[in-house]
């Protein structure tokens, strides 16, 4: 078995654009769940509207890439407002149910044949943008052990830069009085209300902020791949983001970044090992994909049992009941 090859695949994945996009999803989710206590099970929905905002703008309407990015952001804000307006006043469980339902409805609509003229239906959208034309690199990143093609290097630089930017913005906000109100809502929204805080407005701001960060993940996904397909936005995208968040440590600042790298490293290494086992005849065909996911899930369960605060979470904080 090629262990080195499997580790190479894992590392390749850990620093790749997919990990960066999922880091953005997890940073958004951290704003919602980690800091505000909003149980958003529909982060895939923000991922989707960001990506389709770009895809539809370019492929269907023929807009420029900047207009497409703008549309992706507008779509994320609009989704947050539509989702939050009727549900944020209700108990948190209603909000959770609504988010997963809305995300699924969006995906099913995008995937449906009647929506084909706009979303491409089940075939999705393929397009081209000037993103790679402005790539300043002549050669790809070569770290010796792993290397990336020249276009991927450019995509990684832009996406990881956005990850850093989002992390810094969230860190600044959460250490401000605004963040204090947000965290107090996570602890007890009635207490926040009794101290004169407009809880609904803060929850809405949090939903929009985290949604826009998640939407940015979608925007980069579409631009990097030059394609959008509804299958990307299945509920498991949300659960991957949750896994990343818990892995890194909820309500920690760099947790989502490290969590995403670790998650994709483990998943890709596992997939590579299982695939090798499959081709060596140890595993029946077709079982390779699910087995890697099962192993990843098992790893996460062990993590939650033995290190519930994640890599960067705060043990002292976690030992207190909400």
């Amino acid at each position: 078995m090629d262990v080195v090859g499997a580790l190479q695949t894992g590392l390749q994945s850990a620093f790749g654009t997919q990990a960066a996009v999922y880091a953005l999803l997890a940073i958004g989710l951290n704003v919602h769940y980690g800091y505000t206590g909003l149980l958003n099970f529909g982060q895939a929905g923000f991922f989707l509207v960001g990506a389709y905002g770009v895809g539809i703008s370019i492929a269907t309407w023929g807009l420029s890439i900047w207009a497409a990015v703008f549309m992706g952001l507008v779509a994320s804000v609009a989704l947050a407002l539509l989702l939050g307006a009727p549900t944020l006043r209700l108990r948190s469980d209603y909000f959770a149910i609504t988010t997963i339902a809305v995300a699924e409805v969006l995906r099913l609509v995008a995937n449906s044949a009647p929506a084909g003229p706009v979303t491409g239906g089940p075939l999705g959208l393929q397009f081209s943008s000037p993103f790679y034309a402005v790539n300043p690199f002549d050669v790809g990143l070569n770290l010796g052990f792993i290397s990336y093609p020249v276009n991927t290097t450019w995509a990684m630089l832009v996406t990881w830069s956005l990850v850093v930017l989002a992390t810094l913005a969230v860190a600044l906000l959460m250490s401000s009085p605004w963040g204090r109100v947000i965290r107090s809502i996570r602890e007890d929204e009635e207490a926040a209300r009794s101290l004169g805080k407009n809880v609904f407005a803060y929850k809405m701001q949090s939903l929009v902020l985290g949604g826009v960060i998640g939407g940015t993940g979608g925007i980069m996904w579409a631009i990097v791949g030059n394609t959008v397909n509804a299958n990307t936005f299945r509920p498991q995208a949300t659960f991957f983001a949750y896994a990343i968040l818990i892995l890194g440590g909820a309500a920690s600042r760099i947790g989502p970044i490290v969590g995403s790298m670790l998650f994709w490293f483990v998943l890709a290494t596992g997939q590579s090992v299982v695939r090798q086992a499959g081709s060596a005849g140890y595993l029946p065909g077709g079982l390779a994909g699910p087995t890697a996911l099962i192993l990843t899930g098992l790893g996460l369960m062990l993590l939650v049992v033995y290190r519930p605060q994640g890599v960067f979470g705060n043990t002292r904080e976690l030992s207190l009941d909400g």
Partner: peptide, 17 residues
């Protein structure tokens, strides 16, 4: 309704309008 995972001083500062 003490805000458990906020420090005592943060609890206090939250009260200011």
């Amino acid at each position: 309704k003490a805000l458990s995972r906020l420090t005592v001083i943060d609890n206090m500062k939250l009260g200011a309008t």
